[in-house]
Design a protein around this nucleic acid. Sequence first.
DNA 1: GATGAATGAGTTTTCATTCAT
DNA 2: TATGAATGAAAACTCATTCAT
Lengths: 191, 191, 191, 191
Amino acid sequence: MKSELIKQSINLFVEKGFSATSIQDIVDTIGVTKGSFYYHFKSKEALLMDIHSHYIDDLLRRQRAILDTEKSHKDKLMAIVELIIVDIEKQGAVGRVYFREIRHLKEENAAIIREKRADFRNNIEVLLKEGIEANEFRKELQPKIITFAILGITNWSYQWFNVEGSLTVKELSAMYTDFILHGIQSPDASN
Amino acid sequence: MKSELIKQSINLFVEKGFSATSIQDIVDTIGVTKGSFYYHFKSKEALLMDIHSHYIDDLLRRQRAILDTEKSHKDKLMAIVELIIVDIEKQGAVGRVYFREIRHLKEENAAIIREKRADFRNNIEVLLKEGIEANEFRKELQPKIITFAILGITNWSYQWFNVEGSLTVKELSAMYTDFILHGIQSPDASN
Amino acid sequence: MKSELIKQSINLFVEKGFSATSIQDIVDTIGVTKGSFYYHFKSKEALLMDIHSHYIDDLLRRQRAILDTEKSHKDKLMAIVELIIVDIEKQGAVGRVYFREIRHLKEENAAIIREKRADFRNNIEVLLKEGIEANEFRKELQPKIITFAILGITNWSYQWFNVEGSLTVKELSAMYTDFILHGIQSPDASN
Amino acid sequence: MKSELIKQSINLFVEKGFSATSIQDIVDTIGVTKGSFYYHFKSKEALLMDIHSHYIDDLLRRQRAILDTEKSHKDKLMAIVELIIVDIEKQGAVGRVYFREIRHLKEENAAIIREKRADFRNNIEVLLKEGIEANEFRKELQPKIITFAILGITNWSYQWFNVEGSLTVKELSAMYTDFILHGIQSPDASN
DNA sequence: GATGAATGAGTTTTCATTCAT
DNA sequence: TATGAATGAAAACTCATTCAT
């Protein structure tokens, strides 16, 4: 029931936005009453926080797994890009909520999520830094800024990519890793 | 007065989001009454549409100027990236509203804006296509997808770039054009 | 201009009702501004009063003319019924406003109109009374009550009669005077 | 509570009219909040529709009972007139709302009510038609038009009849059936 | 005579939240 | 666990009216 509420609310948040979705809208989709909602969630914002927490925690866990498993900096980076893009297929809806609705968390919770986002970002930044030192990536790059560029590419995909279309997430992921690697690799790196 | 309302509402929309900003909030910042707001705008949504229209129309106009002025495909692309990024400084607030709040336009208006956005995107796509044909850019690239990547990089900047920081928009713009050109240029292109 | 405002407001009041018609609605139909309206009328209610006054004053004047001209009680009554019914064609719209919107006059004005309505009604009542005394009409009738019946028949017509239809106001008037006379005439009255 | 809201709103609608009565006015009379009103009714118009539906449905049910029970056409007609008039005492307030405020229903609902009103009217028209064929009523009468006359007499009563006065509804009803029967009966009908 | 801008009080409606059962 | 009823605060929007120009 709780997970059903989460699932349906995500769909509604994607469709209409957090503010424009009422508790009534949510409970109507699964045929229960508002009282029931408040048994499972302290507030509407708590539900949104729940969604955000699960999403970023899962992402961080998988990012860590990649960093622990893959060998070269290039491979690590490719795997992280793929992680985000390929998720569109399975987690596209949550992702869209995650990217759009953080503003509606109360400051206290927003801070928690922002910190985890910063961790995720920082892990990429460190990766780039080390790749530069290892001469895999170009010396002129500013890791922090390039990290934002990479996240821009991947995260923006959630806004336009249509799972129904002819392009698969695997293909998209391949194109974007190729584009990014061309953008950052040292000319003398053994491709 | 009308332009004052627009200006203040943009600030509030950036800060709290469209839905969470009330007409009362807006008029309070300039000390007029709600009735006054409704004398100038048919509805809250009409104000949002006003903001969207002006922004994209201005952007399209300047994009066209670039396409008519610059010579090589590379120069055109660089100029367009710079156009978006450098605007953060002067138009950062409107931009943030433009990228985040389109969902709150009514379908009829959203369609108009979406079409203009598609024009802007399409102009880049065509530019890439021609650059590929001219052998300036790599043959393997899919122009449509790379266009989204470029827009992801530039548009995402509006979310994190802090005008107050030590990095200037000019510098950011330079880094991103460099990154993008590395990502797309033919190896044999005279850089 | 003033008469134009009256004319158009009557149409709107018929269509949407007094409360639901805004000053804006009225001035829009003739392409002037609200300020203009307030040059001609002290208030929205004043316009409604204007409409009511003209209508009932005109009706009373014509009723008096009938009472002064026609000979028998029967003829007087027939002429008054015809007066009301035949007016549907020329004054149907005003009539509908007159019958429906008196409630929106302020008490002070409503009292004035109610008094004139009472005069109009009373003239019929007196006519019936005299007709009974003259043995033209049946002795058992209560003039006051029958007056209301007659007014019910005629006034109700404004709600359903369609000028566009196949029945003319003359025909309707004939049918109703016939019906009423059958209802009230003494059996021994030389028809 | 819901029925209490209906009851009080009817009183207010009679007194001030539908448009001029606010939800606040209604809830204030029974000391609840506006939110409570909207728990029970989807909108102000929905409440008005509720009132209209119940009134006409009840009227139709009782009219049908009369048509099934009474023997002669004359008796049926008398019973129907009495039905409407006598109701003033118990249902005067609802009746006044019913006769005055249909314009404030949305077209969709107004159509439903208009159709039921037409049924009620049509039942009388058919009754008159059959009475004419049975030679109870005069051959020259146009049933449709006479039906409107009868409804004018009865419905108009809701506007002026004062339950507090010395005349009872029974007496009024008797006078009006007498008046109507004189107006329509064949001279040779055994009275 | 007419306009454009502004006001302020009021309107209907929405909605997150609470709570007795 | 769940429901149904109620709350209260706030939202968007309307509108008659005023008034300087």
